[in-house]
Design a protein around this nucleic acid. Structure first.
Length: 1083
RNA sequence: GGGCGCUUAGCUCAGUUGGUUAGAGCGACUCGUUUACACCGAGUAGGUCGCAGGUUCGAAUCCUGCAGCGCCCA
């Protein structure tokens, strides 16, 4: 560390140490090293998308994981931080598809499945390493020898194994249902991938004729009520025509009366002059009218009940003859008669609720759309081929032309959007694979629901079969998982309580292809498949859920020889399904005319296995034995359902145990204005640029300092700047220490550099290095402050309060160590190097000055204290600032005397500082009273600086202060005050007679004067003192009033009472002092 | 509609079980290049703790209601 640069230059340091760590295998976990004394600690990384790039969310998330991992290493644990990437089905596939269309103007179908997948792999090879390299830049201490990818061959096998297993258990099934269909990516999505967003649109009211009208003469329109026009809609003047030429009148039924003005006109059947009855229907999706197969009313609705069983004439498609457009009016209790007009159009093919109504009433399902969101021929001639949104406009026009459109008004409602493609999803009837979640009960029970950190009160899960609690579930206390912040536990519990089956198939190519093969049963060949499946077996399949057998029959050939078959039927044809994870059996199937399901699995169906599938499962590997369950999981709350909940279920189902003990949910990183970081807003800074500009440590520290537990993070580049400044401060504080050593402040004459370092390096046998008898009050103060900091930071980290820890580090180091201690230490370090004039004045009242040899010993002792503090501080900082601390650890020589594996090679393995034990405190007389004394001393300094201000004396100008002590002051302490005040001298004078008008301050150590030669601005000083006096008076009054209240004095605890009495005395004293000063000015 | 969170200095946030003058960083302003650091030091200003009630000797803190913002679920 010769010729240390004045400013810290991270660029020259970071790569060097990262390479060093890798070279020495510092991140590599070895299960063989795990013992009782060296417990395991593990985290699995939330695998970033393989082709993704680092964003601020990753920085936040991975910095936290790295802090946890590095802290655990320093605690002497065997640490596994297992990294990897996710194949990210839709994201990656659409990225490659986009590129294909851009560069070659081709769709994936143009080049075919095989070729397309080849392109994706190429893309993956090219971009897949980027984010990993970026994590390394950030300093992440992952065990890269264990990097995994969700499409690694073993991982693929695991996914298939799990699929087949769940299939055999009857938990995976194929079903034709309403799913969330994304017309952009043309695949089904799970409920979790749908995001509800408010959407501005229109509510259209249109009228339909009741086919059986006129019903009865009684329903003819009442006389004189013909003028019942809708209000004109201005530019959509066509509406006016819509109700002409036949004006409608409300029928004299009770229903519509409670409605609002506008709705009243629309609700209830209307009759025209010819006695025909019309119903008005409200909809936001008129383009789906051709798919309507009924209209529904609530059977309890008096306005419409009598119409149930009749028919209406569906207005679209226009070209169809009336008799082909008659659809029934049905009664269904689920119709909300408050909503719209109380008449609901039922489109079973294009709405989830309508589909359910359709099922109840056995309505036909008319699908009028293509998978890409365009209309098909069933929608009618003008709509056919149009995009659904274009079709909506056209449909409105058609209604208008027919005179059926009654009203059109702006309307906002919540629409489901495809999270990935950001287009409205289309509810669509489709055949997909579904999973009924396994292990739901233990997954629910294992998460601590009480807010008590001790876990004393745990929710007793309600289980079927009379189970009473965790014991019945095999969940002892240590099998409980905690969420941080705790409130997410409730969200998790709620989701699990209302859990719906998971649609796991995706109509994509990139991903885990579903390990199921089909065979249409009309083909007799299947019955003799491999001499194993014959007609007898198929007969057994028929009517049962499944039948299991081995096709290949070769022992040990594959890990699983089972084949599960089931008979599906009822919709299109009867199909034989065969699920197998065995390649051998798959090829037999294919050789016999079976074809594999073209779909792939939802990406999360592979990531939910991540904690164990990355550790060698299903083999009982050493890694699994030692590192599963993992200790902590750090992730974003956005994926609590996608990932966290599912991992817990998979953990129970396949490992019989929870996958992690703690889950830490980070906040969302937002910009200064509180907006979410997003590509389209362009408000997301590139972390790599920030690292290049400020250093990785800076971005880590800045992010951590401003990321409170469970709150969103408002990101501001200023935070990174602060991190950079902090590193620089640390750097320079160490530089200062080095300068003392090189300036010859070593203990004994003739000592070598190395020796002085060793002397100074206090890490282990500290007692021998620092001479307790030479400790100053400042030394003891900083040691006690260090002790507080150790405790505070350790506690904060143990409770995942990273910002608290970072702020404590900042405060301790910058405020307490640099601003006070280092400055105070100069009193010792610089003594003798410049005249001791300051102390000559006080020689009468103070003990005699130390001899020169004694001075040297004291300097050495101060350096020893500095080394002690710095070597501890570097370790406290290391999880946050890995690079600079490693650089300084070596540069300062603190590594030299440490055992190889405990800090000698790298600070990574240096032991985490522990709060001082009693023995240590006794040895160094670290009594809390020194905190008080040093604080008083620093208060004198603050007051003195204040006086300078009053005298308008520049901070740089040397002046003389006088202290009239209220207690004995040692020469050292006087010198500290002098240095900190940047004073020419400080005179300790018990009988100082201040000249009239001398600025004075009342301090805990006595009256402090700043004698000036008549330069003082009397008016300003008066103002200052008056302000102070008023302040003291106000406080005094407040306390006095409290103490005068018998209610207070009688009820309050004695300790509080005493405190208040003390306070009263203090204020009184101050007040007297300030009053005296004011009087002195006046006279 | 249900649930959760937030509201304290110009900004971002601390404030533990109620108990001194409600703290910090940034920003602003003033002064200063004093031999670690201008990526610095010293100092100053700035808050009726969202609003209204209540409990209490005492409320930023506990309770109730209201308002605003945000998120999740339906």
């Amino acid at each position: 560390m010769n010729e240390i640069p004045k400013a810290y230059e991270p660029q020259s340091v970071e790569d060097k140490w990262y390479a060093f760590w890798l070279e020495h295998g510092c991140f590599t976990a070895d299960p063989a090293r795990v013992t009782e004394q060296r417990p395991a600690y593990s985290i699995v990384i939330p695998p970033p998308n393989v082709t993704g790039v680092l964003h601020m969310g990753h920085v936040l998330n991975n910095t936290i994981q790295d802090i946890l991992a590095r802290k655990a290493r320093m605690d002497g644990k065997e640490v596994l931080w297992l990294p990897g990437t996710d194949h990210a089905g839709i994201a990656t596939e659409s990225m490659v598809a986009k590129q294909l269309s851009k560069e070659e103007k081709k769709s994936k179908r143009d080049i075919g499945r095989e070729e397309f997948l080849k392109r994706v792999w190429t893309w993956k090879e090219k971009h897949g390493g980027i984010i990993i390299a970026q994590l390394k830049k950030l300093g992440c201490s992952c065990d890269w020898t264990r990097e995994r990818f969700t499409m690694d061959p073993e991982y693929v096998r695991n996914v298939q194994r799990v699929f087949v297993d769940l299939y055999k258990k009857g938990l995976i099934y194929r079903g034709k249902r309403m799913v969330n269909w994304c017309p952009a990516t043309q695949t089904a999505l799970s409920d979790e991938e749908v995001e509800m967003k408010p959407q501005k649109g229109f509510m259209y009211h249109f009228k339909v004729e009741v086919a059986e009208s006129p019903l009865t003469p009684a329903l003819s329109p009442a006389a004189g009520e013909r003028e019942n026009r809708r209000p004109s809609l201005g530019k959509t003047g066509g509406v006016e025509n819509a109700v002409s030429p036949t004006s409608l009148s409300p029928l004299p039924l009770g229903g519509g009366e409670g409605q609002g003005e506008g709705e009243a006109r629309l609700a209830g059947p209307l009759a025209d002059s010819e006695g025909r009855i019309w119903l008005t229907i409200a909809t936001t999706r008129p383009e789906t009218i051709p798919g309507d197969t009924a209209v529904a009313v609530n059977p309890k609705d008096p306005r419409y009940a009598h119409l149930i069983g009749k028919h209406i004439v569906r207005p679209l498609p226009s070209e169809l003859p009336r008799e082909q457009k008659l659809i029934p009016i049905i009664g269904d209790e689920h119709v909300d008669f408050e909503f719209g007009t109380g008449v609901l159009k039922v489109t079973p093919a294009h709405d989830k609720a309508d589909f359910d109504i359709g099922q109840r009433h056995k309505l036909p399902v008319v699908d009028i759309m293509n998978p890409n969101g365009t209309m098909n021929p069933l929608a009618g001639r003008p709509l056919d081929g149009l995009d659904r949104f274009k079709a909506r406009k056209v449909a409105v026009e058609l209604l208008r032309e027919q005179g059926a459109l009654v009203e059109e008004k702006p309307y906002e409602n919540n629409i489901g959007f495809s999270q990935r493609a950001d287009v409205p999803i289309e509810p669509r009837l489709s055949e997909q694979w579904f999973l009924k979640y396994p292990a739901v009960e233990p997954s629910k029970a294992c998460v601590e629901q009480s807010d008590d950190p001790e876990g004393r009160v745990t929710r007793v899960p309600k289980l079927a079969g009379g189970s009473q609690g965790l014991a019945e579930l095999g969940l002892p206390r240590n099998k409980i998982m905690r969420f941080h912040p705790h409130r997410w536990a409730k969200v998790y519990d709620h989701w699990l309580t209302n859990i719906q089956d998971w649609c796991i198939s995706r109509q994509l190519w990139w991903g885990h292809r579903i390990p199921v093969w089909y065979f249409p049963l009309s083909n007799k060949k299947a019955f003799t498949l491999g001499n194993v499946i014959d007609e007898t077996n198929v007969a057994r399949v028929n009517g049962k859920h499944c039948y299991t057998t081995s096709l290949s029959g070769l022992p040990g050939h594959e890990t699983n020889f089972d084949i599960t078959m089931s008979l599906a039927g009822g919709w299109d044809q009867r199909i034989l399904f065969a699920a197998t994870e065995s390649k051998k059996e798959a090829s037999i199937l294919e050789g016999n005319g079976f074809t594999q399901d073209p779909d792939v699995l939802d990406t999360w169906f592979s990531s939910w296995l991540w904690p164990f599938a990355t550790m060698g499962w299903p083999e009982p590997t050493e890694t699994l034995k030692k590192f599963y369950p993992t200790t902590d999981l750090v992730t974003a709350p956005e994926i609590i359902f996608f990932w966290v909940a599912r991992m817990i279920m998979a953990g129970y189902e396949y490992m019989g145990e929870l996958p992690f003990r703690n889950v830490y949910f980070t906040g969302i990183v937002r910009d200064k204005q509180g907006r979410k970081m997003s590509k389209s807003l362009g408000n997301s800074p590139d972390p790599l640029e920030l690292i290049a500009k400020y250093g990785a440590d800076a971005i880590r520290f800045g992010t951590m300092r401003s990321a409170p537990l469970g709150q969103d993070v408002m990101f501001d580049e200023k935070d990174v700047e602060l991190g950079r400044n902090f590193c620089n401060k640390l750097w320079n504080a160490c530089r200062f220490r080095q300068m003392q050593s090189s300036a010859g402040v070593s203990p004994a004459p003739g000592s070598e550099q190395e020796e002085s370092r060793r002397d100074a390096c206090p890490t282990f046998e500290v007692q021998g290095e620092i001479n307790p008898s030479l400790l100053t009050s400042d030394d003891k103060w900083i040691l006690l402050k260090l002790n507080d900091a150790i405790r505070e930071i350790s506690d904060a980290l143990a409770t995942y309060n990273f910002s608290t820890a970072a702020q404590a580090l900042y405060r301790f180091f910058w405020n307490e160590y640099c601003d006070w201690y280092v400055e105070a230490s100069k009193a010792v370090l610089f003594s003798g190097s410049r005249g001791d004039e300051a102390q000559t004045d006080e020689s009468e009242t103070s003990p005699s000055l130390p001899t020169s040899a004694a001075t040297e010993a004291r300097k050495a002792n101060t350096v020893a204290v500095i080394d002690f503090v710095l070597s501890h501080t570097l370790r406290l900082f290391h999880p946050f600032l890995p690079f600079i601390t490693e650089e300084l650890w070596h540069g300062m020589g603190y590594s030299t005397d440490m055992p190889e594996q405990q800090g000698g090679r790298t600070i990574m393995n240096a032991p985490w500082p522990k709060p001082f034990d009693q023995e240590f405190r006794d040895a160094y007389s670290l009594d809390e009273c020194y905190l008080g004394f040093a604080n008083d001393k620093y208060e004198v300094v603050t007051q003195g600086r204040n006086l300078r201000r009053v005298g308008n004396i520049p901070a740089g100008k040397k002046v003389k202060f006088v202290l009239q002590p209220s207690r004995p002051i040692l020469p050292h302490d006087a010198e500290v005050i002098r240095i900190l005040l940047n004073a020419e001298a400080i005179e300790i004078n018990e009988s100082f007679a201040a000249r009239q008008g001398t600025p004075t301050a009342h301090t805990p150590l006595g009256e402090l004067f700043l004698p000036l030669e008549g330069l003082i601005d009397v008016t300003a000083e008066k103002a200052r003192l008056t302000k102070k006096m008023e302040e003291y008076q106000a406080e005094l009054t407040k306390v006095a009033q409290k103490l005068a209240n018998p209610n207070f004095t009688q009820k309050v605890p004695p300790q509080v009472l005493q405190e208040h009495q003390q306070r009263l005395a203090d204020w009184q004293e101050k007040l007297v002092s300030v009053k005296a000063a004011l009087e002195a000015l006046d006279s």
